[in-house]
């Protein structure tokens, strides 16, 4: 390649680099990496992610370093004569064993993390999450509260228009899932139609919602981490797969208790129901509501 070609390629690379740099600057570092999140599980996942990433980076730098060194040193244009060796049992054994050791080093914390995520102890709050095409239903099993959570209408209106008109475009809903901080919450996840997946990155876990089956997942949001956390359906579920967000509103104990009381009062006013009667189960989605898009 000629000098001009090289110069042109270099300036193209520079332009792309500048674009990438500005993207990073505007969006911030959190747009490059996994979030640390607000639960012990998300912290475990983040720590493991960073550990494995750095191990990969170090191995990569070493291997590619040797490769580039070789490309520099062992070029025909430098007038070298090629060596003739074509195997070395010692070297081959070494580079089989070293990766094995590294893998064991990764597998140990990974196994520990996985076991820590498995926890079948009693939870204080149980919520049944049902995926529908294309919305979520949340049922608070102990408190008898039912919520439907749809894509926020302002987002929906903006899809074919000006997306900047909608706050948290595609990541806001009409009714968020309200959760208490500091308490173990157990989600029982299922689906009415096709497979969906419930995922909020800040909570560190995703689980498939499978029709006819109930999956379990648990969350304990750190005491000091009240706030709004956003996620999306993560398993292709048809036309509006990209338009069934999840919003979690994590509240401190008293705020959560007040919310529960308020919702229960509102419901009693509308239709009295307790466990053992059937009134609460009537809130089925109507066909009209399902064809909203």
């Amino acid at each position: 390649m000629g000098a001009t070609t090289k110069r042109r390629l270099a300036s193209a690379a520079l332009a792309i680099g500048a674009l990438a740099a500005s993207a990073t600057a505007r969006a911030g570092y959190d747009q490059l990496n996994l979030p640390v999140g607000v639960t012990p599980i998300s912290q475990t996942a983040y720590d493991l992610h960073m550990l494995i990433t750095w191990i990969c980076v170090i191995i990569g730098v070493a291997v590619f370093g040797v490769m580039f060194l070789s490309i520099y040193l062992h070029r025909k244009s430098r007038g070298v004569t090629p060596a003739k060796f074509h195997h070395s049992t010692a070297a081959e054994i070494i580079w089989t064993i070293i990766p094995c050791v590294i893998l064991v080093g990764m597998a140990y914390p990974a196994t520990k993390g996985l076991i820590a995520m498995e926890d079948t102890s009693e939870a204080e709050v149980t919520i049944k999450v049902t995926g529908y095409q294309w919305k979520w239903k949340y049922e608070y099993v102990e408190d008898g509260i039912t919520l439907w959570s749809n894509l926020d209408p302002t987002s929906r209106a903006a899809i074919h228009g000006d997306v900047s008109a909608a706050e948290n475009y595609l990541l806001s809903v009409d009714q968020p899932l309200v959760l208490p901080v500091g308490k173990k919450v157990r989600l029982l996840i299922t689906s009415d139609d096709v497979i969906h997946a419930w995922w909020v990155p800040q909570l560190g876990m995703k689980k498939d919602a499978i029709p006819g089956f109930v999956n379990e997942m648990w969350i304990r949001i750190d005491d000091d981490k009240a706030g709004i956390y956003r996620g999306q359906c993560a398993e292709l579920c048809g036309k509006d797969h990209g338009f069934m967000p999840i919003v979690v509103d994590a509240r401190a104990a008293d705020g959560y208790a007040a919310w529960v009381t308020e919702r229960q009062a509102a419901k009693t006013a509308a239709a009295p129901a307790t466990a053992g009667t059937l009134a609460q189960a009537t809130a089925q989605p109507t066909p009209a509501a399902r064809a909203a898009f």
Binding site: T126, D192, V214, A275, G276, L278, Q284
Partner: peptide
Amino acid sequence: TVQFVANVNSALSWDFAPAVI
């Protein structure tokens, strides 16, 4: 603890609930 949960597929117009949760 044994919890009881009821689901009804939306193609079936029934109400369905456990007697105790």
